[in-house]
Design a protein around this nucleic acid. Structure first.
Lengths: 136, 136
DNA sequence: CAAAAAACGACCAATTAAGTCTGTTTTGTA
DNA sequence: TACAAAACAGACTTAATTGGTCGTTTTTTG
């Protein structure tokens, strides 16, 4: 019942990119140093975020990463799900993988569906706009 | 970011005990069969719940388990924390184990504290009274 | 071309999750 | 009193996941 280290690092990395001067890029090395994240592990994380469309990457000697869109349009949910996949607070809410469906009607199912919806909403409403120090 | 199978089983077991006729006990075997939980695994779970004070157990041939108090006074939080220990939605909210404290002030910390508080409140407000079929 | 950057994928150690197995103790009943 | 049925206790196992490392390749630019 805890966010993975990986997802937490991802959030920190994105927060870092939020405060980059417009048009600038940050390298893995720079982010790793600034946020105290193991270099190679961060490399994997940034790759995942790029594949998920949260970041844009540039190769080559002047390369690096930046957000793919305005920080206020990047939510915690975007980042977490990019790393961990779709959030399911209980096996029970994964639909097909829920065993209680076969046995009968699970009376606790609705509760978890509600909680999950609420949590996801909170995460999706929380954007990185809040972490921008110098507002453009 | 998901409830453990163990905690889910624990909730189902407690729900089962909620609907026991007053004064009656249920054995591990009975619960395991009714809720489709592996017998030996459930035994450990019920032991944990008993140690945590959620259930009361009786040994001997007519033994078994029952709730230690009214079902409306047993919350999801009671059960989950009995099994998984104190809930911490992120390493960040565990206080001492949070690395960001050393580095500086973590701007995301408050968000997690809030979310955790909200989630725990929801769990603590959700009691098993709701799952009682025949209301005393 | 050399340096610096990202991309890719194999590998690894430790921990946790989920469950099993074996044996002990307690207790009501035939 | 012996037996059966129940809980108690804890060691053990297996597989998956987590958190992270390493080595190599590709891209880009001064």
């Amino acid at each position: 019942m805890q966010l993975s280290r990986k997802a937490d690092y991802a959030l920190r990395a994105v927060r870092h990119l939020t405060n980059l001067p417009k048009g600038k890029l940050a390298s893995i090395n720079a982010i790793a140093a600034a946020e105290a994240i193991p270099r190679e592990f961060l490399a994997k994380i940034l790759k995942d975020l790029t594949r998920a469309g949260v970041l844009v990457s540039f190769q080559g000697v002047t390369g690096g990463y930046r957000l793919s869109r305005t920080s206020k349009d990047v939510s915690f949910l975007d980042v977490i799900e990019a790393i961990e996949g779709p959030i399911h607070i209980n096996l029970c809410t994964e639909g097909d993988r829920c065993s209680c469906k076969q046995v009968g009607t699970c009376t606790m199912h609705d509760f978890w569906i509600d909680q999950e919806a609420h949590f996801k909403k909170a995460l999706s409403r929380h954007s990185f706009g809040k972490y921008k120090k110098v507002k453009a």
